[in-house]
Amino acid sequence: DVEPGKFYKGVVTRIEKYGASINLNEQVRGLLRPRDMISLRLENLNVGDEIIVQAIDVRPEKREIDFKYIP
Rank of each mutant, 00 (worst) to 15 (best):
S39W: 14
V11A: 01
E61F: 07
L32V: 03
R59G: 06
K68W: 05
E61T: 09
M37V: 05
N44C: 15
Y18L: 08
L31E: 02
V12G: 00
L45F: 04
P4K: 14
Q27W: 15
Q27C: 13
S21E: 15
V12E: 00
R35P: 04
R35A: 12
N46Q: 14
F7I: 06
N46C: 14
V12Y: 12
L31Q: 05
G30M: 06
S39H: 14
P71L: 07
E16F: 15
G48E: 02
N25A: 08
D1M: 14
V58Q: 03
K9G: 02
N25P: 03
I15H: 01
V12F: 02
K9I: 11
E26S: 14
D49T: 05
I52T: 10
I56R: 05
V12S: 00
P60F: 09
I65V: 10
Y8E: 00
A55G: 01
E26Q: 12
I52C: 14
I15A: 01
A55T: 05
L45Y: 02
I70S: 09
I38V: 13
R63Q: 14
N25T: 12
E43F: 08
V28F: 10
V28M: 08
M37K: 03
G19Y: 12
R33V: 04
L32F: 04
D66G: 09
V12M: 00
E43S: 11
S39V: 09
G10Y: 05
G5D: 04
I22E: 01
V53K: 00
Y8D: 00
T13H: 06
G30E: 02
D1A: 13
R63T: 08
Q54Y: 13
T13K: 04
I15M: 04
R14Y: 07
E61I: 07
G48H: 02
I15Y: 00
E61D: 14
V47H: 01
P71A: 11
L40A: 07
I15V: 10
G10V: 08
V47W: 03
V47R: 03
A20R: 01
Y69G: 02
E61M: 08
K6Y: 07
L32W: 03
D57E: 14
V58F: 07
Q27G: 13
E43V: 08
R59V: 05
G30Y: 04
R33S: 10
E3F: 12
V58S: 05
L42W: 07
M37E: 03
R29F: 12
D49C: 07
Y18I: 13
K9T: 08
N25W: 11
K68P: 03
M37C: 09
Q54H: 04
V28G: 04
D57Y: 13
E3Q: 14
I52E: 05
K9R: 14
V12L: 02
R33E: 02
G5H: 05
K6H: 09
V53H: 00
Y8G: 00
L31G: 01
P4V: 15
D1G: 13
N25R: 06
G19E: 03
N23F: 13
K6M: 10
Y8L: 03
I65W: 11
R59Y: 07
I38D: 10
Q54L: 15
Q27K: 13
E64T: 10
L42A: 04
I22M: 01
N46R: 15
L24T: 02
I15D: 00
R33C: 06
G30D: 02
E50L: 13
S39D: 15
I22A: 01
G19M: 05
I70C: 10
K17F: 12
E61L: 09
T13A: 08
M37Q: 03
I52A: 02
V28A: 05
E64F: 11
I22C: 04
I65T: 03
L24N: 01
N46E: 12
R14S: 12
F67H: 03
F7A: 04
E26L: 11
R59K: 08
I51P: 00
L32Q: 02
I70Q: 08
V12C: 05
R63V: 07
P34L: 10
E61H: 11
E64V: 09
F67W: 07
K68S: 11
M37I: 07
I15Q: 01
L42Y: 06
K17D: 11
P34I: 12
N46Y: 09
I56Y: 12
R29H: 13
N44W: 14
D66F: 15
R59C: 07
V58H: 05
T13Q: 05
Q27N: 14
E50P: 09
G30C: 12
D57C: 13
V47G: 00
R14C: 07
G10L: 09
G48K: 00
N23R: 15
K17I: 13
G30H: 03
P4G: 05
Y18D: 12
E50A: 10
E26W: 12
R35L: 06
R29M: 14
D1N: 14
A20S: 02
S39I: 09
V11E: 02
K68Y: 07
N44L: 10
I15S: 01
L45D: 00
R41S: 12
R59Q: 06
P71K: 08
T13C: 09
R33W: 04
K17W: 15
E26F: 12
R59I: 05
D49K: 02
R33M: 04
R41T: 14
D57M: 14
F67C: 05
K68E: 03
L32M: 05
A55V: 15
K68C: 10
V2D: 02
R29Q: 14
V28I: 14
G5P: 04
R29W: 15
L32N: 01
L24A: 01
Y18Q: 10
D57F: 14
G30S: 02
V28S: 05
Y18F: 13
Y8N: 00
R14Q: 11
M37S: 04
R63A: 12
G48D: 04
N25D: 09
L42K: 03
P71C: 15
N46V: 11
I38G: 15
V58R: 04
A55K: 00
F7D: 01
S39L: 12
N25K: 05
N44Q: 14
Q54P: 00
V28H: 08
Q54A: 05
G19K: 04
E50T: 14
I38P: 06
V28L: 13
G30T: 02
